[in-house]
Amino acid sequence: MGEQRRPHLVVFTGAGISAESGIQTFRASDGLWADHPVEEVATPEAWRRDPERVLRFYDQRRDQVRRARPNAAHKALALLEQRGFAVSIVTQNIDDLHERAGSRHVLHLHGEILKARSSVDPRMHYPLPSGGIRLGDRCDKGSQLRPDVVWFGESVPHFPDACEVVAQADLLLVVGTSLAVMPAASLLGHAPLKAPCVLVDPEAQTLAPPGVACLRAPAGKGVPALVQHWTREGRLWLPETLLGGA
Rank of each mutant, 00 (worst) to 15 (best):
E45W: 03
A46H: 05
W47F: 15
R48F: 03
R49T: 03
R49N: 03
R49L: 01
D50M: 07
P51F: 02
R53W: 03
V54Y: 15
V54C: 14
L55C: 09
R56F: 04
F57D: 00
Y58R: 05
Y58H: 07
Y58T: 07
Y58L: 06
D59Y: 08
Q60M: 04
Q60P: 02
Q60L: 03
R61G: 11
R62S: 12
Q64H: 11
Q64F: 10
V65Q: 06
V65R: 06
R67L: 13
A68S: 05
A68I: 00
R69A: 13
R69F: 13
P70C: 12
A72D: 01
A73V: 11
A73D: 10
A76L: 14
L77V: 08
A78Y: 14
L79R: 15
E81C: 15
Q82L: 15
Q82R: 15
R83C: 04
F85A: 02
A86K: 14
A86G: 08
A86D: 15
V87H: 00
S88V: 08
V90E: 02
Q92Y: 10
N93K: 05
I94T: 08
D95V: 10
D96C: 06
E99T: 12
E99P: 05
E99V: 09
A101Y: 11
A101K: 12
G102T: 05
R104K: 14
R104V: 09
R104T: 14
R104A: 15
V106F: 11
V106M: 11
H108V: 06
L109K: 14
H110V: 03
H110R: 05
G111P: 09
G111K: 11
G111Y: 15
E112S: 08
I113T: 09
L114Q: 13
L114N: 13
A116K: 09
V120D: 03
V120H: 00
P122D: 07
R123S: 03
M124L: 15
H125P: 00
H125Q: 07
Y126G: 12
L128W: 01
P129V: 08
P129A: 11
S130A: 12
G131T: 12
G132M: 06
I133Y: 11
L135Y: 00
G136R: 02
G136W: 00
G136C: 00
D137T: 10
R138I: 08
C139E: 02
C139S: 07
D140K: 06
D140N: 05
D140R: 11
K141E: 10
K141R: 09
K141P: 03
G142D: 04
G142C: 04
G142V: 04
